[in-house]
């Protein structure tokens, strides 16, 4: 059984249908990349797996660790190991990163029947995990994402991922707004966290990121469906030819699959 198995997923925001029957299987140890033109449902899919209440699932199911998670509260999904790296991380002035992460780590530990970390243990863990994304700034006393540059926000997402050690990480356009150095650091962090027991879904527009985070599969999400799946070379094809040929193939009839 796959770690994540999405079956015929339909979803909408308000009256607008965005996903129109997504099917996807992700196994432990795999990296999947989801690509596709803007506005075709990539972020929606990521949000729905994490449980964003903004979207309504109208049909289908998401099976994760053999459980249908559609009715599972957002925080329980997280405690079960699902992590979403946000495309636009939210700024929360007044909540320090330390308090935020301590609350998250402790509540996830509580869910797994573990005692909370002592302050010393926690601070040690933070220092260790900061290295994953080469963070040099002193996080203590800083509010969550407040006044962070685009790059710092994305590094902070990967830092949180390192702290929480998820089983399934979904990175929603983690590369957008990053310069080449920051991209290398962020991708390096993701690679360091890869293992045989976890899986990663990377949502991106550009092949560039996939030079650093090499996927096992590339999927194209178009008009609310995964219309094509291929090996990592598919991303290179897209980079070269754009999305037009996919649209043409689809128009010519039949599945591109």
């Amino acid at each position: 059984m796959a770690l994540l198995s999405i079956r015929n997923l339909h979803a909408s925001i308000g009256d607008k249908e965005i996903l129109r029957g997504v099917n996807l299987d992700v196994n432990r140890g795999e990296v999947h990349s989801i690509m596709g033109p803007n506005g075709n449902g990539k972020s929606t899919l990521a949000g729905i797996i994490a449980g964003n209440p903004k979207y309504t699932v109208t049909q289908g199911e998401i099976i994760y660790k053999d459980k249908n998670i559609l009715d599972m509260p957002v925080d329980v999904r997280a405690a079960e190991g699902i992590f979403l790296g946000f495309q636009y991380p939210v700024e929360i002035p007044g909540v320090s990163i330390t308090n935020f992460m301590k609350a998250a780590v402790d509540e996830q530990r509580k869910y797994r029947g573990l005692d909370p970390l002592s302050s010393a243990e926690f601070l040690r863990l933070m220092e260790e995990k900061k290295k994953v994304v080469e963070m040099t700034t002193n996080l203590v006393g800083r509010s969550v994402n407040e006044g962070f540059s685009g790059g710092e926000k994305k590094k902070n997402e990967i830092f949180q991922m390192a702290m929480l050690e998820p089983t399934l990480a979904i990175l929603d356009e983690t590369d957008s707004g990053l310069d080449i150095d920051a991209l290398r650091i962020v991708a390096g962090g993701v690679n360091r966290l890869r293992s045989d027991s976890n899986a990663t879904i990377v949502i991106t527009h550009y092949q560039r990121l996939l030079d650093y985070i090499v996927p096992d599969f590339v999927h194209i999400l178009y008009e609310g469906k995964i219309v094509k799946t291929g090996p990592k070379e598919l991303a290179l094809d897209l980079e070269e030819r754009g999305y037009e040929w996919i649209k043409e193939e689809l128009a010519a009839g039949g599945s591109v699959r």
Partner: peptide, 20 residues
Amino acid sequence: FYLRSRGISERTARTLLLYA
């Protein structure tokens, strides 16, 4: 949603945001 997606319960997230 951001706070809860990190595993923070609704009650705790509310408290944090009210303080913020």
